[in-house]
Amino acid sequence: MNLPKIPLSDWIETLEEWLENNLSPLFDFIKLIIGGTVEGLNNALDWLPTLAVIIIFSALAWYIGKWKMGVFTAIGLLIIDNLQLWSQTMQTLSLVLTAAFISILIGIPIGILIARYNGLQRVITPVLDFMQTMPAFVYLLPAVTFFSLGVVPGVISSIIFAIPPTIRLTNLGIRQVPAELVEAADAFGSTPGQKLIKLQLPIALPTIMAGVNQTIMLSLSMVVIASMVGAQGVGATVYRAVTQVKTGIGFEAGLAIVILAIILDRLTQQVIKRSKA
């Protein structure tokens, strides 16, 4: 095979350059919004006394779940504080919540759209496959080019990696609404909007929430990778421990991520259960 190599890498770099030169005001704007959100959230969590944050989260867990949830949350957060990983963990939480929030904000409307239009679904589905399977490091690079080092490219790559479940499950949830119910809604003269608000979204809610849960978990799994482009937090602690071969510190930081993951997972699972009832 003596065919010349397709100059794909050249094309991509040309595109990257073009985007950087022409869309930089847009990137600056996005950076401002995302950076501001993460920072604001982090400042709020920082400003509150540690104990107050622990009490608020435990009470929330108790309220949403059972008392066991509240106790687990309290103990878990106290362990994190005891390991002196509190401020890093709060930075990570800010990053994860921001990424998850933006994913939901963008993902649910896209899911609704592709549930309505089959053609759009055929276009979007392979894009989602691409986003989920392309190694995260690869899109970390252009993210840094556009948004420079720091928390913002971390959030962006977390969103790219974590948004597909919300889109997919919103689409699935709406498509799974029984056809006879949709027919009934039509028979009584619902507009498409009324059908969506009064029937499809309420019935799809548990499925959509399962997608949101997955999105939060996936963005949490990105924190170490995000730390490689300068996102602060407990992910950065893990990364440093790995580069310096410090097993103990690495394990402590990893444990903090696990605790955070369990709390976020159980909380969203409870919300799913409630939305089914």
């Binding site: 006879e180 119910l181 028979a187 009584f188 003269g189 029937l199």
Partner: peptide, 16 residues
């Protein structure tokens, strides 16, 4: 027309 003139009842009830 569907809202005001013609109602419908379904085999499998199709209640929300």
């Amino acid at each position: 027309f569907r809202r005001k003139n013609i109602g419908m009842v379904f085999q499998k009830f199709a209640l929300f």
